[in-house]
């Protein structure tokens, strides 16, 4: 069943009872929340994703609840729970949907140790994937959103999941997080992109999420990473791309890994295989259209 098979009333009721689970790639998130922004966000940005009602098993049970106390009236807040645990401080209620997105990322990054998880955007052409590792502000999500709007397959804008057995990457197609100027940049770059409401004054500034393009919600087959590009957005910069040696590429990937130390030698062998199969580059850019063309050219070689 897809989210769009349910009315917003049904989604709201099922979420309030904690009976609805969202499938994203290999993970099933059972979500409980009575906050209207959560049901609105899911119906708008995850309309074509698979959902299950009362599944016998879910990977994660998450809840978003309004905080109690006096704040409830004056400065309403939302808190995120994994099972009965609250890993984060509460946020303003207006950031509820963004908190769900961040919370789901946190669940995967901190618990899915059967994968090597990298902080990176990931897109693909067929079975050949482009990995975009980067710190916040590097422009990886913006570039990822732009490439997806030009027909690249979305794996994730935040988490690259490598299967240690095969060295393949698996897709976790979720709404792409856009921050601050990127929101307008993508609206201008792809006017047809479906972008949700903007949450302002978050820890990351203004945040909005772009829906997964239609037809990509299931994620599709795994892929192998063929290009590793470390993006660095600099306002007004000339586009520049230079190769990075496999060893240095690997060291940088380790820096971007959430659970390399958990996997130990398996993680080392896995990343070794990845960098030997891929070409590594560092790419400075100031103009989105230019860098998108560069990535297209890389894939066409």
């Amino acid at each position: 069943m897809l989210t769009s098979d349910l009315s917003i009333g049904q989604v709201t009721a099922l979420l309030a009872e904690g009976r609805l689970a969202l499938r994203t790639g290999p993970f099933l998130f059972r979500i409980r929340s009575s906050i209207p922004a959560i049901s609105r966000g899911l119906t708008r940005l995850y309309a074509r994703h698979t959902v299950e009602v009362d599944p016998p098993f879910s990977d994660f049970h998450v809840s978003l609840e309004r905080s109690g106390g006096v704040r409830y009236l004056f400065r309403p807040q939302v808190r995120f729970l994994l099972d009965e645990w609250t890993p984060f401080k509460p946020l303003p209620l207006t950031q509820a949907f963004a908190m769900l997105e961040w919370g789901m990322n946190w669940c995967i990054a901190n618990h899915a140790h059967h994968y090597l998880v990298l902080h990176a955007a990931l897109v693909a052409k067929g079975d050949r994937a482009l990995l975009l590792p980067g710190a916040p502000g590097s422009g990886k999500s913006t570039l990822c959103a732009a490439l997806v709007q030009r027909g690249w397959r979305l794996f994730s804008d935040e988490l690259a999941l490598f299967d240690p057995a095969t060295a393949e990457v698996v897709a976790v197609p979720r709404a792409v997080g856009l921050k601050n100027r990127s929101i307008e940049v993508i609206r201008h770059f792809a006017p047809a992109a479906r972008i949700g409401p903007v949450a302002r004054d978050t820890a990351k500034g203004s945040v909005a999420h772009m829906a997964v393009p239609e037809g990509q919600e299931e994620g599709g087959a795994p892929a192998r990473v063929r290009w590793i590009v470390f993006p660095a957005f600099t306002e007004g910069a000339e586009e520049q791309i230079e190769p990075v040696t496999p060893a240095r590429t690997m060291l940088e990937l380790i820096e971007h890994a959430f659970n390399y130390s958990v996997l130990g030698e398996r993680g080392f062998n896995l990343l070794g295989r990845v960098v030997q199969e891929a070409e590594g580059f560092r790419c400075t850019y100031g103009e989105l259209e230019q860098v998108v063309e560069r990535m297209e050219a890389l894939a066409a070689k």
């Binding site: 040696t245 240095r248 690997m250 060291l251 130990g264 030698e265 080392f268 062998n269 070794g272």
Partner: peptide, 15 residues
């Protein structure tokens, strides 16, 4: 130790 030679650079993982 786990070794990986990549051209003229070598990576070594220390468990």
């Amino acid at each position: 130790l786990c070794w990986l030679e990549l051209g003229d650079e070598v990576l070594v993982y220390h468990s």
